[in-house]
Design a protein around this nucleic acid. Structure first.
Lengths: 145, 145
DNA sequence: TAGTTTTCTGAAAGTCATTTTCAATATTTA
DNA sequence: TAAATATTGAAAATGACTTTCAGAAAACTA
């Protein structure tokens, strides 16, 4: 079931309504680069439809996260970011503290060790955050300021 | 060099001043349980000195993080938390989403894999965040609500 | 399909943690 | 000790997010 279908099903089951705004936001969200903040997506959406409100974008992104087609991220810059959930393997992020670029990485062996930690503490892991902050290859190559 | 000395040295080198507020905050911070939010530490400090201001507590905690004797944490509850840096091995956190309790864990093998990820992407890792969210043993044992 | 019910929307106001401002105060330097 | 400079606390400002509310839109019902 694709993500649009998942969303429609969620809306139906919850007795919510399927509005044109929600469809526009969903479409734009799914076709965007990952890791948009609410603000960024809002600005992008305004170009398509200048009347769309920030609150609606925000509420809709929350709704996406709720129904499992988006993941909320937070890289410590004080703005929530959202990325579409994809079918591929789970990934975490490298965040460049110079240019803000975000690289996704997968490391199944870390996931295994995480589960091990959970078992050790009798802790039921439901989610995790794992981010590596530093300087990306491009920024390292540039002259130091 | 202990953490008080590190702080004094930092203050000296930067041409800052060593005030009684900073000393009180440092002392209280180092002798507290980890993971205090600014608000929590502020309330605790007010009992010692009711005239101390929130802004001063906040500024001083930032200063501690700056000079390396505190780590700023953020567990997604919208409040920054700080913990004193200790000499022991680096640790990360298990955060219970029911009761808010925080368990520290160490897993050197994860650190090794992290470094490997960094090398793979030619990324200079400076810091990281790794948090596992879920239900702690105590909350699991309690009746479900 | 028209009427009814319910949810949505966008603008504006509110919230909350954090950050800044600024005049008074304290520390450090000369 | 005076002069220079940094710090403090209260209050105001900021900024991301959240709520409110009246009008608009969607879904249900007869």
């Amino acid at each position: 079931m694709d993500r649009v279908a998942v969303f429609n099903e969620y809306v139906r089951q919850k007795g919510l309504k399927n509005t044109s705004q929600r469809m526009t936001i969903l479409e734009t969200f799914l076709n965007s680069k990952s890791h948009y903040s609410t603000e960024e997506l809002y600005l992008k959406l305004r170009k398509k439809n200048p009347k769309i409100g920030y609150a609606t974008v925000h509420r809709t992104l929350k709704l996406f996260a709720e129904c499992g087609i988006a993941t909320e991220l937070n890289f410590g810059d004080g703005q929530a970011r959202f990325e579409p959930v994809h079918d591929e393997q789970h990934h975490d992020h490298l965040v460049c503290t110079r240019c803000g670029s975000i690289i996704e990485f997968e490391e199944p062996r870390i996931e295994v060790l995480q589960d091990e930690v959970g078992r050790k503490y009798d802790f039921k892991i439901e989610s995790h955050r794992h981010e590596l902050y530093g300087v990306c290859a491009e920024c390292s190559a540039k002259k130091q300021n």
